[in-house]
Amino acid sequence: MTPTYYLLLSALLFSIGAVGVLVRRNAIVVFMCIELMLNAVNLTLVTFSRINGKLDGQVMAFFVMVVAAAEVVVGLAIIMSIFRTRRSASVDDSNLLKY
């Protein structure tokens, strides 16, 4: 058992999140998948912090959380306003910007 396992777990979680972004159509679920990817990255940062014996990684993870929170707020507001006008939360329905 070494901390490397945390990194491997993080890689798996990140990939699962990425696949989720690609296959799910509900915008909120897509958002949650992005959150999962961010969390995976946070786990990596915390693990690196421990491997290097410095707190900088944890500070980074902290900032990531802050940014993620801001992103969630704005993103959910956008989803809300889109839903209000189009009565749909599917990312496939917003496809007017195309050829």
Partner: peptide, 12 residues
């Protein structure tokens, strides 16, 4: 141009 389907998931 056909690749520009408008579907965000394709782009992703």
């Amino acid at each position: 141009r056909r690749a520009q389907t408008g579907f965000v998931r394709s782009y992703a």
